[in-house]
Amino acid sequence: MTVGLPHVLTLAALLFGIGLYGALSRKNAVHVMMSLELMANAVNLNLVGFSRFVTPEAMTGQFFAVFSMVVSAAEIGLGLALVIAIYRRKRSVELDAVQELKG
C-alpha cells in the first residue's frame, strides 16, 4: 500500500478532531494548550501533505508549515507565561478555579 494524499488528510483530520475535543472539554489550562498544539500539528501535517502531493515542484506548503510552527511555538510560550502568572496568584491552573468574571 502506498501512502497517498487521502491518508495524510485523514490522519490530520483525526489529530485535529482529537485536539479540538480536548481543547473544548479539558478543564486544566495546560491540557487545553497541549490539545491546541495537537491541532497545530494536524495543520502542519496537512500543509506538508498538500505540498508533497499537490505542488511537489514548489515548496510553498513546507514554508507555510515552518512559519506556522514558529508562530505556534511563540504563541504557546506566551500562553504558558500567562498560566504561570495565574498559578502564582491562585496556586491552580484549573480553568474552573479562575471563574471570577461572568459574561
Binding site: F16, L20, V43, V54, T60, G61, S72, E100
Partner: peptide, 27 residues
Amino acid sequence: LEGALKYFLLSMLTSLIMLYGLSFAYG
C-alpha cells in the same frame, strides 16, 4: 490575567481553525 487567559485560549483555538481552513484553501 483570567480575562487575558480566556482571550488567549479562544483566540489561539480560532486561529488554528482558521489555519486549518487556510491549509485546505492552499491545497
